[in-house]
Design a protein around this nucleic acid. Structure first.
Lengths: 351, 351
DNA sequence: AATTTAGTGAAAAAATTTTGCACATTCACT
DNA sequence: AGTGAATGTGCAAAATTTTTTCACTAAATT
């Protein structure tokens, strides 16, 4: 058991007087910013008990931000967190991943999580949340805790930083047109999720504005690998087959391709495919997969920037519905471009 | 700015006297465990400044454990963290991911990270660490902080929980023998890393003990996707080609297969392949990939269990070289089993 | 050169926490 | 049922810790 740490210890440690240390920590009276910094540093090092948020943001040794999300499996989730983690490199920010259970009512759990712990801010990613859910969350959340959502909704009630999903769909359609595909298809995401609808709208709006393009097939998906496989079954039996398909996320892209390839379908020979998320696997799969690239590190940086601004203001947080869109791009790969000759071997070999 | 929180606030909040509250928090004198619990709960809720580790483990609202690792890319890293995260569901443990930069001297950075923050324990995953590095780490680490490594080394100096890497290699060789493969090959991991050598030894020991098997090809890898591709180039030019190859991790498995498939090689028709880690992609790739399954959630659970025991003892931590091995299994998939007829279409179609 | 201002430490004052003591309650054992 | 020990609590005194007052210095401003 360690002895109790008092101002005297800090005074001895820093060579300053107790009075000065007191003034520094309670931030009253005259105190040089230089010494203030020294004192806080020493206080942290010696483990002097400071209540959360007593230390001003700029003097904190670390800022804890919770990334609250349901536990999504696999790569997408990993990329998201990795992006945030990347964006904190070299800063004093620590990202903490907090999983919200799939069972219980998420709102309450989030709140209690945030209250209990010493987080300075929260980023929430819950695409199935509606405006009402956000409202409820804000109502019970500690008022001095900045919260940012990274899932878009139609009528945002809290600050949101998200990818430009609409533009993603748009870029894919544009790419398909440039490659000369005419009859297009889409495997869409969950109807209830705003970002899935944005992806679709971007895609459809481009098609409708173009004279060359038609939408000839569509399938309602749910982002799962399994639904991608089901989509292929539907595609197989379709009367009018598309030349090129936009899958609203890479999970479904992989499912579709998995079934298609086993069924003897050549991609992109028989049908071209483009996905969304640009998971690491896209580059490793055979064929490599064209996908809308979502720069998670940029999302992370933008979000953290926003949070820092909020923290510095240090006023009661005004939650506005301000939305910031992070640009996306298209990573072109084999699945939607001409059959390159690297594949010729593979196909010819079995003759 | 909130008013300073004192014992009086807690007393009012709990209905107890200031004395009782004082005794509860400082844990001196007579105090009922019931009230102690109430007081600590209230203190946390009201945000009374308590120095770290002042609250006894069993009364904490949350336990923070740092998972310290370099930033490994992609799925492996994700699976690792996901396993830990999974294993904390339903407990009051929070896992925090702390990335150690690739640049600076990691030991010092780890220490300062741990000192600064309010972690209760640390799990470190730094496969390139040697006994000397661990020693240095332990020397400077706070003495009351349990640290567990999840990377095996030859002479462990701190508690270690790790997968049974040796058995993994062994299982693969056994599987190859059962499938009737005779001439085997291996793409090994970094020579300097203990777990890579264990995987290799398990594989080779089985081969040497068997009358049917021979090692005819090997390649020194480094776990990277790129090295897997290089391994294929080497394989292509080899005089004596193996029927079946054990890749020491899935990153290299993917690299090897990526190049092989583009070069017209059929897997497992021409050569069978098995990997290590059982990344989610193994199930999604075409063909699906046989791989040694490492149950990360079990690793997480075991590790956290160990940490809890250490925390409860609450004595100065005795770092022993105790190693606990988590069992692995083999996930059989297409890449090492007979060419199933789902593939016939694909290969015949181009005739 | 005089005067203001920022910043500091010593010591007094205020606030907070700990402890000694009295008292109540429970429980084990006659 | 009665006794004594042990446990647990609150009040108030004591001890400790923190804040504030005040005097002083050095630098900046007029």
């Amino acid at each position: 058991m360690h002895e109790k740490v008092t101002l005297k210890h800090i005074a001895d440690d820093t060579g300053l007087s107790i009075s000065t240390v007191s003034r520094a920590l309670s931030q009253t009276g005259k105190i040089s910013s230089e010494n203030k910094k020294i004192v806080f540093e020493s206080a942290h090092r010696l483990n002097y008990p400071l209540s959360t948020s007593q230390t001003p943001v700029e003097l904190r040794s670390s800022i804890n931000i919770a990334l609250v999300t349901r536990h999504y499996t696999g790569e997408f989730y990993a990329s998201l967190f990795e992006g945030f983690d990347q964006s904190t490199v070299g800063t004093k920010v620590t990202m903490n991943l907090t999983s919200v259970s799939h069972r219980s009512k998420p709102t309450l759990q989030i709140i209690s999580d945030l209250r209990n712990s010493q987080y300075d801010a929260a980023v929430i990613f819950l695409p199935e949340f509606k405006a009402a859910d956000y409202m409820e969350l804000l109502e019970f959340a500690p008022s001095n805790l900045p919260i940012v959502s990274i899932a878009p909704i139609a009528n945002p009630v809290m600050d949101t930083v998200t990818f430009d999903n609409y533009r993603g769909g748009y870029l894919v359609a544009n790419h398909f047109e440039e490659r000369g595909y005419k009859n297009l298809g889409i495997i869409q995401g969950p109807i209830k999720q705003s970002e899935a609808m944005l992806r679709k709208s971007g895609f459809l709006d481009y098609i409708h504005a173009s004279d060359n393009l038609n939408l000839v097939w569509q399938f309602n998906g749910d982002y799962s690998f399994r639904k991608g496989k089901e989509a292929y079954e539907d595609f197989r039996q379709a009367d009018k087959k598309p030349d090129a398909i936009f899958c609203s996320n890479d999970g479904m892209t992989l499912g579709f391709m998995h079934s298609a390839i086993r069924d003897g379908v050549h991609i992109p020979g028989d049908v071209a495919v483009a996905g969304f998320d640009d998971l690491p696997t896209c580059e490793l799969y055979t064929p490599t997969i064209t996908s809308v690239h979502t720069p998670y590190d940029m999302l992370g940086k933008k979000t953290i920037e926003l949070i820092f601004n909020r923290l510095k203001q240090n006023t009661e947080v005004q939650h506005s519905g301000y939305t910031s869109l992070v640009p996306v791009s298209l990573s072109l790969r084999e699945s939607s471009t001409e059959l390159t000759n690297v594949f010729q071997n593979y196909y010819q070999r079995t003759t």
